[in-house]
Design a protein around this nucleic acid. Structure first.
Lengths: 197, 197, 197, 197
DNA sequence: CATGAATGAGAATTCATTCAT
DNA sequence: AATGAATGAATTCTCATTCAT
């Protein structure tokens, strides 16, 4: 399938995506120390040279991949988030969305976590990813104004909400935690207890 | 300083430590994709060949380094933890110990997080690191028995406590959060609220 | 010269041969203890990396080189060997062919001898090279049936024929023997005397 | 056990021999391309540094080892060779001696053959090993004078005698030939037929 | 656009050798 | 004499990238 873009003409979206998927998979399997452009090419079933048709170099590819995944996470997380909803309902929606994304996108999630914990995030001069959490940030500010949430530092409250979910997901993928209905309910309750006024 | 062992004569403990420190620093600066044995040797001010006097290979060195750091974190975290202390006091002590460690051992902490989020943790066949958290685990079980803590899955409660601290520390080192007295107090309070019955 | 294969495009037969020749020459000059892939690359006027486009690794290259040379020796040795020729005529033809090959292919011959006397022959799991001598073997069996040759172990008769030529060739290349017409005639005569009934 | 020599005082003959044996064995097992001073040291159960107490360097060690083995072969080969014995008896004695040596000293024999077929023989500036065959040479000259042997080039006659034995020994160690009484008798007979007038 | 042969720099590791003990 | 830790050069091989096709 060939797609015509304004600045990316004749480029095959499937190949681009195949390269992204191959990179994500390999990064989760063997990590940054063992990955290489030829291994990625082999996994993506393209020639090493082809990667350089789509990306300037390895760094450029990784940066674009990271932004792509970050975008996916962000849009999944805030899907269906209409402002009129009350604060707590929005909190619960975001939590559910996030959990759903994590459980259905193992590779993207683990890649993102690995990437965020490596110095690449800084070294690739990726703009502040907090933009991605903007709606989350606003929700918390609003909750503080409505005295629903504790009057703590906003970043602190934010982290109290998303850090446990992410960490539990990793434990889940290491088979040390189970994501059943009860645990999800408990998690959402406990997170709310942490931040509620 | 030279240490004499029965089967390992003249082996210099400083060199071992210098290699560890060089690796930790470089890993935080340039990451797994850019690190190399020669760069480590240069930073540690030893010859590349010397690393192989102390370690079988790169993998062996990283495994031993990881276990070494994990041990440091564990012993710091549970320092002064006497059983007679009531559950909440022990909870607060662990939190303070952990925060103190993180703030005084930037390199070790960031290395540990990077390592845990890479596939190396599984690929190096490291024995279950949950042993390290054993006292923490027991504390939570005890808290549940005393009806002080929610009757939730133990791993869930564990994560609700340590995940936010760790995540905030990373935000702190990215200059997106401040670890002042108030924030620390708030964090401990909120974490307790998350897990308390 | 560029050859197009179905699954091996653009691969240059000259480069393959250049690598083989460089290896043979260096092996005869400095031996297995001093040879290296970079020295081979330099001699063959290719980049070290290029060798790995043509061969999996050093072992694979040496194995393929050995089989290549063995094939050359075999086809030279039995060139023009028509079955109708009487046993003695065939014996003499093989001897002449072999001597001619040895004198015109110093490098290949000395490489072959060095290789056969090293443990590589066994360690590379090379299939039984006796296949190469199959026509020779058959000639001797036939000679024994016709009562022209001694009724000795076939391998014994085989060795009585080819071992002296090969050894004399080595002495020749060490300037301790001369391969003039008389010596060649004498050698063939003496070899025949050794095996004839 | 410590032995006192004039120019090799306090040096342990056992260690010297252990190093020689380790080298011979390893050379037969893995060859020149894979051998190393540390592997030799490990096999000889001495420290790498110890080798340099006995030898100047690797080259010096190999040279001395070669000369040592050559000496052993030579003295075995000509053992019991009294001049009064008739030519044919001496021929048969040398053959028997040589076969006996080969069958009882696999490692030394194979090492010698490997070494002689490598460029090391020339590169180590080893003096003409033909000195070793001096008595053999003389025997043939004498046989020619007595018209017992063909009036061929002496080297040619020499090679006709020793090359087949050596080659058969190699086939024997590759399990492609059997050294039973009959074969030995046949070999000596055929070799004599090759050279006798 | 897609290929894969070609490259030289750099990767992990081993080498022969030295020297303080 | 004997050790083995230490070394920097050299080993095999892989890397990111280029470019002719």
């Amino acid at each position: 399938m060939i797609v015509y873009y304004s600045d990316m003409r004749y480029k095959d979206k499937n190949k681009n995506e195949a390269i992204f998927q191959a990179t994500i998979q390999l990064l989760n399997e063997i990590g940054f120390s063992e990955i290489s452009m030829s291994k990625i090419a082999k996994r993506a079933q393209v020639s090493p040279g082809t990667i350089y048709v789509y990306f300037e170099n390895k760094e450029d590819m990784l940066r674009k991949l990271f932004l792509n995944v970050e975008q996916k996470i962000s849009s999944s997380m805030f899907e269906g988030l209409h402002h009129p909803l009350p604060v707590k309902a929005r909190f619960e929606l975001i939590m559910s969305n996030y959990i759903e994304f994590i459980l259905n996108h193992k590779d993207e999630f683990l890649f993102y976590e690995q990437f965020c914990n490596s110095p690449l995030v800084e070294n690739l001069y990726l703009e502040d990813s907090s933009l991605m959490f903007q709606p989350f940030y606003k929700l918390i500010e609003e909750g503080k104004e409505q005295k629903l949430l504790k009057d703590y530092d906003t970043m602190l409250l934010l982290v109290l909400i998303y850090a446990p979910v992410a960490e539990l997901a990793k434990q889940y993928y290491r088979r040390e935690f189970e994501f059943n209905d009860e645990n999800v309910k408990d998690l959402i309750q406990a997170s709310w207890d942490a931040v509620k006024a």
